[in-house]
Structures are given as C-alpha cells and as structure tokens.
Amino acid sequence: MDRIPILKFGNTLLVTIQVDMHDRLATALEEDLTAKIVAHTARGVLIDISALEIVDSFMGRMLDNIAAVSRILDADTVVVGMRPAVAITLVELGLSLTGVKTALNVERGMALIHSRLAESEADDADDED
C-alpha cells in the first residue's frame, strides 16, 4: 500500500501531502507519524497541506488526532498552507480544529516550532536554577 513520506529535519518531522488521500492512507499516516515521533524523539511535526484541494471531516479529524497524540508525546504539530477555499469550507462544515496550530507556510511553521522549542528550553533552564 502507498504511504505518505515523512521527512526528518533535526528534531522536526515534515510531511507534505500531495495526493487526494483516501481514508486508509490518512489512517496510515496517523500511525506512521506517531511511530516516528517516538522513534526520533521529535519535538515538532509540520504538515504541509498546501496541495490539498479539499479537507473533509475525516481528514480534519486525522489532523486533530495527530495534534493530540503528538502533544501527549511532547511534540508540537503545525498545519501549514491551508488554502482559503479549504479554510472557508471547513468553517462552514463546523470544524475549527482548535487543537491544531497553524501557519501560512513551511518557513513560518518551522519558525513557530523553533520559537516554542526555545521557550521550553528556557523554561527548563529556569527550572534547573
């Protein structure tokens, strides 16, 4: 079965979804990501959906789940590049993905993850004092 590739950049995982996903593929991605976060002790997950023409409630739930699972595993998930039409449709559908962090593009998403990492490292440093 096809799998969506997951790239590793330092302690961040990057997923670019470029195909019209069927539900099994989405479920597989959720499982793969969970496994990789643990395997690489990743602190951030970046999901680029700029190529997606639609996000329905199933994919929305998948994004929500990934964010929730990664939070438990101490990683931040940022969804980047959602198209305006997709965002409007999701809101109309009733999905606001409140548990998911968002950014305009990969660059901004990466910056968001790094700034949060820096914050938590600073906190850790404070605790050690």
Binding site: M82, I88, L90, S96
Partner: peptide, 12 residues
Amino acid sequence: LKTVAAARLMGA
C-alpha cells in the same frame, strides 16, 4: 467569527 476562524486555519 467565521472569517476569523478561517483565517486562523490558514495560520493568520
């Protein structure tokens, strides 16, 4: 509020 929610989904 819908507009605000959609903008947030896009990261703004």
